[in-house]
Amino acid sequence: VKCKQGEHQLQYSYCLWFSRRTPGNKASSSNYEQNIKIMGAFASVEQFWTLYSHIARPCDLTSSSDYHLFKHGIKPMWEDEANKKGGKWIVRLRKGLASRLWENLVLAMLGEQFMVGEEICGAVVSVRFAEDIISIWNRTASDNAINIRVRDTLQRVLNLPPNTIMEYKTHTDSLKDRSSF
């Protein structure tokens, strides 16, 4: 995927993935890989909007669906080389907010608003029955200064109230308990 003439290049190119889990099925690496598919890739602002305008918004997805927007070359999996020492910030949202906040997060990531160098790997929106969950993945779970900056930027771009609970979970812990959240 390449930026074409006249388009506005992004700092990174990205892949958008979609997954849907059969409710009740415990996550495992093999069925996760089978259930995830690439929706498209883009390298410019224009290519992003073309893709984004043609896909369903999170609020129109059925439960147990996820969008994963990751830098090109990084699989949205805990085991990926870029992710395996990393973790993610998790924000749980009441129903009805996910589409708007997901868009805010995506625009902040594409526009390089996090200011943490190469640290950001990707972002995920998870549509569930009673709540929706937004998360942003970074490379180095052990770097506290980076993590605080990611958290503060997330809070700002999502315009979250100061009392919002934000959890950080390392992918090592996710692998141990086979659970994303």
Binding site: L10, Q11, E46, T50, S53, L107, G111, E112, Q113
Partner: peptide, 21 residues
């Protein structure tokens, strides 16, 4: 090196560009 930074308003405006359709 230099990074390509876009603010939210710029990105939202780009949505209506002919190349974004």
């Amino acid at each position: 090196g230099t990074r390509i930074i876009y603010d939210r308003h710029f990105l939202l405006n780009m949505r209506n560009s002919p190349l974004s359709q």
